[in-house]
């Protein structure tokens, strides 16, 4: 028997009710991400792409359909420490230093941070924040804060890594840099990654597959395989084949 898929959603529906309005956030979403794959979800705002991730994380529950993370229900996978997560905004606790922020998942999971200080230091080094261990989030730039969030997502050795527009708040230049670093980090950890983004080039550069969603109701309209060799170099961003894929995705996004 083969190992279960890292992330598997089948027939997931979700409706939000509020203030007399009913929003069909997700209709019949089926998606599975094989182990070790990198999947990007792209779509206009309000298409439910973040909801897909929140359901996979167990932060929201699906109205119907089945969700399995590493073969179990999401919350169980979370409590077992199999998942890691980075949100759109770094969501750091402003009163904790960089190191103490990275320790948060360990504390919640009831693991001792003291026994893995070397590993935490490795994570800090990995995201290039050596020397900033004791800085407070307020003293860091936006890009540095986001890297802390990435390190925090990786600190539990997650099998599955969720990222919800992790670089959404960064400028284009920084974003490219972070994309490169993320690719490197992901290659080193070998985890199953799910990235929610609204940047086409970011999705194409990083992912094995790009899932395109449409809104009203939120649904998956196409899944596009990206075949570029790894590791992908920055030069890929200016490759014609790369642009062709991007244009194709843009067409699908705009209902072409």
């Amino acid at each position: 028997m083969s190992a279960p898929d890292g992330i598997s959603l089948s027939g997931v529906c979700k409706t939000f009710r509020g203030r007399g309005k009913i929003v069909e956030a997700l209709r019949d979403v089926t998606l599975s991400c094989p182990n070790g794959s990198f999947t990007a979800i792209i779509g206009p705002s309000g298409c439910g792409k973040s909801t897909v991730m929140r359901i996979a994380l167990g932060l929201e529950s699906a109205d119907s359909g089945e969700v399995q993370i590493a073969g179990t229900v999401p919350m169980q996978a979370a409590k077992a420490g199999k998942t890691g997560v980075a949100f759109q905004d770094a969501a750091l606790l402003p009163w904790r230093s960089v190191r103490r922020n990275i320790e948060v998942p360990l504390e919640v999971l009831g693991r001792s941070a003291a026994t893995v200080t070397a590993h935490i230091q490795n994570m800090i080094n990995l995201v290039g924040l050596k020397g900033y261990e004791n800085a407070l989030p307020g003293e860091l730039s936006g890009g540095m804060r986001q890297r802390v969030a990435i390190a925090r997502a990786l600190v539990t050795h997650p099998q599955i890594l969720f990222m919800d527009e992790p670089f959404g708040a960064l400028d284009q230049i920084l974003r490219r840099q972070m994309n490169l670093e993320l690719q490197r980090i992901w290659t080193e950890t070998g985890s199953t990654a799910l990235l929610v983004t609204h940047g086409i080039d970011e999705a194409v550069f990083l992912a094995d597959r790009v899932v395109v969603m449409h809104a009203n109701p939120g649904r998956i309209v196409d899944v596009i395989d990206i075949g570029f060799d790894r590791p992908r170099a920055p030069a890929l961003f200016s490759d014609t084949a790369f642009h062709k894929v991007c244009d194709h995705i843009a067409e699908v996004l705009h209902g072409g």
Partner: peptide, 19 residues
């Protein structure tokens, strides 16, 4: 968002309150 981070790792109501 910080609350979400705690919840995403299976943190309880008490974890959120405390941390």
């Amino acid at each position: 968002r910080a609350t979400d981070v705690i919840r995403a790792y299976g943190g309880t109501r008490w974890d959120i309150l405390r941390r």
